[in-house]
Design a protein around this nucleic acid. Structure first.
Length: 567
RNA sequence: GCGCCCGUAGCUCAGUGGAUAGAGCGCCUGACUACGAAUCAGGAGGCCUGAGGUUCAAAUCCUCACGGGCGCACCA
């Protein structure tokens, strides 16, 4: 608990009123305007109970409540508390400089399996892959920051009927040299061509099905091609992941679990959970939703069965406390079916499996369709962002060292931040102008703020020791300014934001907090001189700036974005 | 038809049941011979889709409409 923790106020109020602390604390809130105070207690509930006006109660409490490191005042039916800024801030800042960002290690000893990324083999990484990749990556870092052991798994789409299509298309039209030269694009063209031809050529569908059956049956030729395609695609994916700083503990595609499916089917059968319905083998998982299909009527496997097998394997291997699937919201029903199937199989840990969904990225109002080849490639977006950043650097900082690397970091950062700044369930209309914006609520804005602070630190050669030696940085002669206090308020909420963001699996909360902090800092920076001639002022503002820079860097890192010291 | 998600400024979005609903972009006015102008200060811009309900108090919770998106058994 810090000096500024509202729990102190809740306790004092609870003692005075003779009410449970929890009840008081649940009511505490932030006043809408900072000059009204830092913590607020609405007295309307008491008013009802005591049959007195809330105004009276607030006024009386303000007058009679024993004071602490705060001042209480009444405003209408609200009892407002304002911290004694000059007394509180020095200690808080000292602690912050000593400890840096200190997150509660609530995950210590616990393991979370995080499935994310999961691109399909034989298709290039498009903007459609942005969310599953960067949301998963951010969550991975956030859980780690809270002490969890994170197992990141990239669940490649490398099996199933789409693969039958790729094999059929390659067999019909494919050229070996072409695929050798540029595997992903060549395979993708075949896939798109397949879907273009399929409507007027019913034979194609049958060929795809036959290839899938050959593949699942262990046919050597099918298997050889499959392995080649998977390996070539994986290489391409890895280079994009490298740009994004994304890594995985395991790249286990769907095919990884295929040999475990027969055991799953066997177990379901002996548990009498499997039924034959319309030629398929299914598990009933409730009257409100359709059954979970485990084996298709043609005998080939289906993704639900692979997901069930995968979950069991992962539990046996990792004994996870939580498993999170970062997969599009359109698959909500599928995961409900899978989790209920696991539950019916008697696995209590099925309750610890969670689907973290996200909205669609749409293109000119429609869903991007990989079947039609109607996609925007992620690499193209990254390249364009980097190119534009490089042009800006040439214009305003021509002598910047390491220009190419900085342009890469800032350009990629803009794209990643753009994808993480809103609630994940919201659909995103892809818009070049917005992705390529570097001003306002953007990644480069936060990066810029951090770089600006770094530059201050360099110039001033600031060391935290200097701050510790000032006896009274703020006092009656030098009150804490509104801008300083606003910045501190934004900073002091950071740890809690990270905790909340992790609990809700919502990285955007971290992104928003970083914007708040950056805005507060820039407001201060433009209105108060930090490198003041007055040594006290200079050092305390440097101390505040130093911590701001640390938090921004920490937060960007959680989001998977690099924070360059110059840009 | 059923289920899930979304509906807040011209646009993109924030907004733990509480006070006068906030940002960014765009538009208008200003600030670089003080620390990095990818910045900042100010202005204009709102029936929080609509109607009921719960509550001392609703953008927020509950119903019902309307509008948009996504699902609804052998694709993933």
């Amino acid at each position: 608990m810090t000096i500024m923790d509202a729990a102190l106020i809740a306790q004092a109020l609870a003692d005075f009123l003779g009410l449970p602390v929890d009840q008081i604390q649940a009511r505490l809130e932030r006043p809408p305007r900072q000059d009204w105070g830092d913590v607020s207690y609405p007295c309307f509930e008491l008013a009802k109970r005591w049959r007195r006006s809330p105004q009276d109660i607030a006024a009386e409490l303000a007058a009679t409540l024993p004071s602490g490191t705060w001042t209480a005042s009444a405003a209408g039916g609200y009892l407002n508390f304002a911290w004694h800024r000059e007394k509180v801030l020095p200690g808080e800042l000292r602690r912050a400089l000593q400890k840096g960002v200190a997150l509660p290690q609530t995950g210590t000893g616990k393991t979370v399996v995080l499935e994310f990324g999961s691109p399909n083999v034989a298709k290039p990484i498009s903007m459609g892959n942005l969310f599953p990749t960067i949301i998963g990556h951010a969550l991975s870092r956030m859980y780690q920051a809270l002490g969890w052991k994170v197992i990141g798994i990239n669940h490649l789409g490398d099996w199933g009927s789409q693969f039958g299509k790729v094999l059929a298309a390659y067999h019909r039209w494919g050229q070996e040299e072409e695929v050798r030269g540029d595997p992903v694009n060549a395979l993708y063209r075949l896939y798109v061509h397949f879907h273009a031809e399929a409507p007027r050529d019913p034979g194609l569908g049958r060929e795809a099905q036959a290839w899938l059956q050959r593949l699942e049956g262990g046919d050597l030729e099918a298997h050889r091609l499959w392995r080649w395609f998977v390996e070539a695609s994986t290489d391409a994916f890895l280079s994009t992941y490298a740009r994004l700083g994304v890594t995985f503990d395991h790249v286990w595609g769907e095919s990884f679990y295929k040999d475990r499916i027969p055991d799953v089917v066997q177990q379901l059968r002996s548990d009498r959970l499997l039924e034959t319905s319309q030629g398929a083998q299914v598990v009933r998982v409730g009257d409100d939703i359709p059954p979970c299909i485990i084996v298709k009527s043609d005998g080939t496997s289906i993704y639900a069965a692979r997901d069930v097998a995968a979950a069991i394997y992962r539990y046996e291997r990792f004994g996870f406390d939580q498993m999170i699937y970062v997969v599009g919201a359109e698959q909500t029903l599928h995961f409900t079916q899978v989790f209920r199937t696991l539950k019916r199989m008697g696995y209590p840990w099925a309750d610890n499996c969670h689907h973290v969904g996200f909205g669609l990225i749409r293109l000119e109002g429609r869903k991007m369709s990989s079947r039609r080849g109607d996609v925007v490639l992620l690499e193209d977006v990254l390249d364009e962002a980097v190119r534009r950043v490089a042009a800006i650097i040439d214009g305003k900082r021509p002598r910047l060292k390491d220009k190419a690397r900085i342009a890469e970091v800032v350009g990629v950062g803009a794209v990643v931040f753009h994808g993480l700044k809103n609630q994940r369930m919201r659909d995103l209309e892809f818009n070049w102008a917005e992705v390529l914006s570097f001003e306002g609520e953007t990644g480069p804005y936060v990066q810029y703020t951090q770089a600006r602070i770094h530059s201050l630190m360099e110039k001033a050669q600031f060391q935290p020791q200097q701050f510790f030696q000032i006896p009274e940085p703020w006092g009656p002669e030098h009150p804490v300014t509104t801008l300083e206090w606003e910045l501190w308020s934004a900073l002091s909420g950071y740890e809690n934001t990270v905790v909340q963001a992790t609990v809700k699996n919502e990285p955007f909360l971290v992104a928003r907090r970083l914007l708040d902090i950056s805005q507060s800092f820039n407001g201060l920076y433009n209105n108060q001189r930090i490198l003041s001639d007055d040594i006290n002022t200079r050092i305390k503002l440097l101390a505040l700036s130093d911590h701001t820079g640390q938090v921004l860097k920490h937060g960007l890192n959680l989001l998977g974005i690099e924070a360059p010291d110059t840009m």
